[in-house]
Design a protein around this nucleic acid. Structure first.
Lengths: 197, 197
DNA sequence: AGGAACTTGCACACAACTGTGCAAGTTATG
DNA sequence: CATAACTTGCACAGTTGTGTGCAAGTTCCT
């Protein structure tokens, strides 16, 4: 009844598939199974030994990604909401530049509810910080909270996709800017985080 | 030799196809031909009477969109670069909320060079305004110009996708914010544009 | 070494989508 | 109204991607 523990070799291949899949999806959101398998050094057929099909593989990728993010985001602290936002951006950046496909799936409506629930905690944190900042009057309040939240999320995503110079700093400041914080002030906030998280 | 002018009816259908295509691509960047045709009230087969294939249809959509944009953007004026940026955003919004798929194609590397060349003038305008603003010190200068330009472009795109309340105003202010302009100042700039373009 | 676990390479069936041919129908327009 | 222009519906071939079955390997593990 108990499905016995998998062979060491097989576990490694499974990981390779998740890695390859993430890399492939990063380039093309609907990369065919065979290129993913090839990138993992396996045959297309072998994939079905690990996952029931493409969908299950993608779900696994998403779930592992979500776990990474949750781990990277870390516990909630009692700090200035702007700092909290900047920290979130930085943490996401550190966690994974390769998280981009996940985020893209999460935002572009589509894909399974898997992604939505996986990203839910992070999105909640964003909204909390934005709400606090709005109360403190440190972000623009001339548009409704939810819209602003979405814009901030997309801004974070934009940074991941642009992958430029000063990437990590942009990951912190750009979402702030999207919230209406001036560039100078945003840079200042990022500086207070400095070497820290 | 001369291909005779098309029947009035046929011209209308052609337009309908372009409209339907834009709408369909907006939802799904690779919507199948038959749903486009259906949305235009035509049969899939009829499409091949107007275009040699899917690619040519998409190209036609892109080209018409580019023309609209160019028309909407209007002539270059001698004005504050921030105002220029805000005006660009507003103009793009007015021109077409439905331009989103084009922009998405233009940014996400892919698709034909058609899109790239079509959008080139607009992108040049953005860079010019940003350069001037940088010199005037009204946008953040802590990251390189090209990266900032891309972020601003994506910000404009984000607004189109979010389609929220206060959409038109966001279309003007949000790209400014992405450039590091504070929310308050951005709103101010937008206000000076007011009823005007 | 020997058996189980895993992979491979083929074969095939199936689905979605594109592009084409052709006969029969509908509609604009001179 | 009569003809040319346009559309439709169907059939068909070609492509790409998925999921499955099975026999013959290879690799781990005891």
């Amino acid at each position: 009844m108990t499905p016995r523990t998998p062979r060491a070799d097989s576990a490694r291949n499974r990981e390779a598939l998740l890695d390859a899949g993430l890399r492939a999806l990063r380039r093309d959101l609907d990369a065919p199974l065979d290129v993913i398998a090839a990138e993992a050094g396996l045959s297309r057929r072998a994939v079905y030994g690990h996952f029931s099909g493409r969908d299950e593989l993608v779900d696994a990728i998403v779930e592992r990604g979500a776990a990474r993010i949750a781990a990277a985001v870390g516990p909630e602290r009692d700090e200035d909401p702007l700092v909290a936002l900047a920290r979130l951006g930085g943490a996401l950046w550190d966690a994974v530049a390769d998280v981009a496909p996940l985020a893209r799936m999460a935002l572009s409506s589509g894909r399974t509810p898997t992604v939505a629930t996986a990203m839910a905690p992070v999105r909640a944190r964003v909204r909390a910080a934005l709400g606090a900042a709005a109360e403190a009057g440190t972000v623009r309040t001339d548009i409704d909270a939810e819209t602003l939240a979405v814009l901030v999320e997309r801004a974070a995503l934009d940074v991941l996709e642009v992958a430029p110079s000063h990437a990590r700093m942009l990951a912190m400041t750009h979402p702030l800017c999207a919230a209406g914080v001036g560039g100078a002030r945003a840079a200042e906030v990022a500086r207070t985080l400095g070497a820290d998280a």
